[in-house]
Design a protein around this nucleic acid. Structure first.
Length: 209
DNA sequence: TGCCAGGCCCTCTTTAGGGCCTT
């Protein structure tokens, strides 16, 4: 019997950045990157590094992330780390929680080192608003608790948040499969889902089930 | 000079405003 082959296009990189603030346009920089490679429903690779942005981060960011200016002074440069991260991403599709935030920083940091990435982004927060409309809110930590997903107990560090986002993503794929009987959920379907009006999600999914 | 994110999404909307979510 011929075994069903996993499609390479199913591989996604789930990423999370810790940053010096909210806006690269205002001069904020990435200070830590964490990411996992998800293939055929499992985490098969990890990438994590602090990076020295060449600027001091605020006390708020030190408290929020636990990443201190002393730690950043000892870290490799953004240029070095981002070059390695661009290799890790390769041409895979990308997932992040509130992806527009991470995409802005990825674009800005890649532009600085003149690297490009070919994959498209999907947002786990926009998907979760549609898959779990009854959750108390759609913060990453709340969704992890709401769905009783695995967690290391660490929050607001890049690799820990990326791993939780990966479990959230895989959990949504499982729940959509069970709820709507869709056997293969392509990345493009998840992207489309995040653009469907919330009131039309059931009809959209049943049309594809 | 002083200020500064930005996109999604809901509603007491659409000639707008404000909460959510990310650091």
């Amino acid at each position: 019997m011929k075994q069903r082959q996993h499609r390479p296009a199913d591989t996604v990189i789930v990423l999370d950045f810790e940053t010096s603030g909210l806006s690269p346009g205002m001069g904020d920089r990435v200070i830590e990157v964490g990411a996992v490679r998800v293939e055929a429903g499992s985490i098969t690779g990890r990438f994590q590094s602090l990076m020295n942005p060449g600027i001091r981060v605020s006390e708020f960011i030190e408290d929020y992330t636990g990443i201190t200016n002393r730690m950043l002074q000892a870290a490799p440069s953004c240029r070095t780390v981002m070059a390695g991260f661009a290799d890790f991403i390769n041409d895979h599709h990308l997932v992040a929680h509130n992806a527009s935030f991470d995409q802005r920083f990825l674009d800005a940091e890649c532009q600085r080192i003149r690297r490009r990435y070919a994959g498209a982004f999907a947002c786990s927060m926009l998907a979760a608003r549609r898959v779990y409309p009854d959750a108390p809110n759609h913060k990453l930590g709340t969704l992890v608790a709401y769905n009783r997903l695995p967690t290391s107990g660490t929050f607001h560090r890049a690799l820990a948040d990326a791993e939780m986002t990966a479990h959230l993503w895989l959990g949504m794929l499982r729940d959509i499969r069970e709820r709507y009987g869709i056997r293969h959920i392509a990345f493009s379907l998840m992207q489309e889902l995040t653009r469907v009006p919330k009131a039309a999600v059931g009809r959209f999914m049943r049309q594809r089930g």
